[in-house]
Design a binder for these strands. Structure first.
Lengths: 146, 146
DNA sequence: GTACTTACTTGCAAAATGCAAGTGTTTTTA
DNA sequence: TAAAAACACTTGCATTTTGCAAGTAAGTAC
């Protein structure tokens, strides 16, 4: 199914684009309750296995996870890597396109910090972010890039 | 139904919170394909009527629009105002909490600009943003605040 | 070789979405 | 001033997506 490239081109990658608006185009890819949590996990952990995502606090269902990972991969936000220790495991990591969502992720965190009570460790991280946002983004981007 | 305050407190405002993560909390409110488009419209237009939202390029259904507006209002992202010209019309506008999503909105636009082809007029606006991001946010925030 | 881990897939019920057609006020028009 | 139009929604119903539980197939550990 994944290798049936003709079908893939026509049906899978060709998601319906609602408009040319950049916000709309973005939401077409990751505008749901789970995708940004997957991306968050990868930003914190750099690399995750399928099982790692399932362990996250929010409790994503296995079928939803598989579906989201596929869409994110099709849209080149994440990529699959062979796990060095085992052929049974798969490593997921952010592409440059995915890493470039870091500023979005940071601003979401800063907004939420202002209006919700958030965990202390996250607060500490955001304190670092606020000290030098550009520096934080640059350093983290470098670290996430292989 | 909207005035049955006991029910409202128990069932409507008490949306299920999946975790304490700021990203998760944010997505619980506006993590869908439509909410950020409503917020986008309000950031561009400052105030919108119900009909204005329906006119947007993406074509939101009337029932979905009503549902999203209610959630955004319950979560104090937007507020309803009486229209100065007519009792038949309702004006929606962003609260401070909603206006504070401007940095998120900007970063989404900048990300999308890098990876999609976007309309020229939006490109021009983003050029302004990049010239002085903090200044743009400050000025726009001031303008959106009544 | 048997049991376990890992990354998924499948089936089905429940919820959300989308479409078309109302409904009840206000406002405009004749 | 009565009828038509505008406006902000609701409602009913079909389709799609989500969520849960239970598989399955390949790889690993003992």
């Amino acid at each position: 199914m994944q290798n049936a490239s003709v079908f893939k081109v026509f049906f899978m990658s060709k998601a319906k684009k609602r408009s040319d608006c950049p916000v709309s185009c973005s939401l077409d890819i990751w505008g749901d309750k789970w995708s940004l949590l997957i991306i968050r996990d990868l930003m914190f952990a750099k690399e995750c296995t399928y099982g790692d995502f399932l362990k996250s606090a929010e409790g994503i269902a296995t079928n939803i996870l598989a579906a989201r990972l596929l869409v994110l991969e099709e849209n080149k936000i994440i990529e699959k890597l062979a796990h060095p220790d085992s052929k049974a495991k798969v490593l997921y990591k952010l592409t440059r396109k995915g890493i470039d969502l870091l500023p979005v992720m940071i601003e979401i965190n800063l907004w939420a910090e202002k209006y919700f009570s958030i965990p202390e460790d996250r607060k500490a991280l955001l304190k670092e972010v606020k000290k030098d946002k550009a520096g934080f983004i640059k350093a983290t981007t470098k670290e996430l890039e292989s």
